[in-house]
Design a protein around this nucleic acid. Sequence first.
DNA 1: GCCGTTTTCGGCCCGACTGTTTTCAGTCG
Length: 576
Amino acid sequence: MPRANEELEELLSEWAELLAVSGADAFRVRAYEKAARAIGGEAEDVRAFDDRAILAIPSVGKSMLARVREYLDTGTVQELEDLREAIPGGMRELLRIPGLGPKKAMLVHRELGVASIADLQTAIAGQKLRGVKGLGAKTEENLARNVANLRATGDRILLDAAMTTAEAVIASITEAVDVEAISFAGSLRRMRETIGDLDVLVASEDAGPVMEAFCAMPRVAEVIAHGTTKSSIRTRKGFQVDLRVVPADSWGAALIYFTGSKEHNIALRHRAIERGLKLSEWGLFEAESGSSIAARTEEEVYAALDLPWFPPTMRENTGEIEAAGAGTLPEPVTVEDLRGDLHSHTDMTDGVAPLERMVEAAAARGYEYYVITDHAEDLAMTGASREQMLDQRKKIARLQKKYPAMRLLHGSELNIGKDGGVDYDPEFLAGYDLLVASVHSLFRLSREETTARLIAAMENPNVHVVGHPMARLIGRREPIDCDFDAVCGAAVRTGTALEVNCFPDRLDLRDDLVRRAVERGVTLAIDTDSHAPRDLENVRYGVATAQRGWARAADVLNARPVEDVLAHVAAKRARA
DNA sequence: GCCGTTTTCGGCCCGACTGTTTTCAGTCG
């Protein structure tokens, strides 16, 4: 049984959006959003919670409890069903367009009958928006651009949504039937930042029951194909999942084939041909005799081609096969290499869980250190005052006694202003153990301004990590424009780490920039930027992104012991 | 709708920015 948390988060988020477009009190909308985030961010499955435990989740009160109970008992909430009836189905998707909030969405609905993104595109094409009072040509142009941006990611879904679905599918199948092996494959296994279709591969000698179990899953909305070796379904959320069943004897070859990438596979087949062999999803064979050389495991197949096993994240044919042949393929950083997390939030600012819960979750991962970096005062909406920060520092010191094996460090996520300045003053900043600084506004400055802005921030002796350096949001916001090589140069010169942010809608630095940074000797920090205990699990996505950029443990600040991290900070401060 | 060292009501969500407007509404972080 999959966790109920994600389902409830989705349900309450939808509820919040429907309330917003129906003109409900903004605080009420916010209460639903907060409850959704808090439940989704809860590390344990709420299905197993009693009422007291549910009420202990931040932002969940009696009202929310009743709804959670109704959902867990009946699979639905009547009040939400009624709200869905009352509001056109396409209104929610309109809210995904940046620059179009609940008010404008309702405005175009009321004035132009727009009830979906397709309707909006038609209205934009006909220049109808500029005729509506309160909107103008500029708004129309901006929305046109933002819709196009959204469409560029198309029907692809973010990594974590794909992973959640894939894990649930695998759980459903393994609960129903015995299989010899099962794995997701394709771009999800390679951990691409967005995923088109999900591929699930099963090794079994008896495909029939596997197919039956797959097509009978409760999350199936539509069976697209139901065959003997391949079936496809569409989930209720609209994701297509392809299932393939292969004999266990071909498992390794099939897993390579279906994991891809296509370019990696083509290169492997060329390599096979050079050796008088033939590679397919069924195995590696002698070209002439057709006798099998290897097929059962990925390792065997790669070894028979004189190659090491490649982490799926590195299978993009961007030089990995040549590098392996030359013995220069780096050993990429792994989740196990990470000793701590340098960027996390609590409910003192925009996190959803109290300090104690976040620290508990970090300790449960076995971290050697954990840095709390709540937002600083310049972020008007959420940033903490000096008094709050000092108070938090005392709480951390007290909490430290409970965790002898994990060093708790006090930091902050500073805001990088237009000219590269940050919050507070040097004296106050000197009181922190480590500081992250990030761009949170003014995303469309010129390349020159942005480059200068980032470099100025890095020259500050109290900026030790640049958080989500390109400030992009996948599918929603383009990265800021900068001279990345100049930024890398400054990072090396000033001893500043660049973050690989693990949030599934950020993954920033992106894989290709990681690779450029690593080539230029930049130190990275793989941080979850957690806002809830559950977010700590996102570390796998950041590590995958770093692997895709060929980063080694040696390139990563938080793969080092705490003494080295503190020495890194001290060294930068000493240069000032 | 949640919350409480200001505790069962009245705050919570502030400031920058954009675009549309002549003084402000909507959106975003």
